[in-house]
């Protein structure tokens, strides 16, 4: 069984020019975790996901991955400041926030490999054509489980 047989061939996507605010609204409205971003040729350019929003809200120092700062239990907090950060980012293009970490899979990737990626806490998987890099669809955990049910 390969991802080809179960993927969603018609996922919601946004163009590179979409704003942060617009993409944010889609995530909120559909209550989904991630959105593939494609350019005008339909080529996959990255995922816009919750992680990108968390990154915006957190202090930069906390994201350096240092052992010397593993938590923020000692800092103080202000709702207004974080709300302001979301507002300020609203008009910036979504392309500034893309997470290059999400490696796409291919139509002939075994479903077991997709399950392993979900197990490793990877969000929805973009499926792209090997040669052209065009987005063919996405695979979410629900599609796999639905197929196996």
């Amino acid at each position: 069984m390969t991802v080809d047989s179960i993927m969603n061939r018609n996922p919601k996507t946004v163009p590179m020019t979409e704003t942060f605010g617009g993409a944010f609204a889609i995530l909120m409205d559909l209550r989904i975790d991630s959105l593939p971003v494609v350019d005008t040729n339909g080529i996959y350019r990255g995922m816009f996901d919750l992680e990108d929003i968390w990154e915006l809200l957190l202090p930069r120092a906390a994201m350096l991955g240092l052992k010397s700062l593993t938590d923020l239990a000692f800092v103080s907090d202000a709702k207004e400041a974080m709300h302001q950060k979301l507002q300020d980012a609203g008009a910036r293009p979504v392309s500034e926030f893309l997470d290059a970490q999400v490696q796409p899979v291919h139509a002939d990737t075994p479903v077991k490999e997709a399950i392993l990626l979900f197990y490793k806490h990877q969000g929805d998987l973009p499926v792209v054509d090997r040669a052209s890099k065009r987005l063919l669809g996405t695979v979410s955990p629900w599609e796999i489980l639905q197929a196996l049910r």
Binding site: P59, R60, A61, A62, L64, L66, K67, S68, L69, V75, S76
Partner: peptide
Amino acid sequence: VLLVVPVTLLITEE
């Protein structure tokens, strides 16, 4: 510096 810099970044950001 690995110990002091993250705290410095946090404080200056605030």
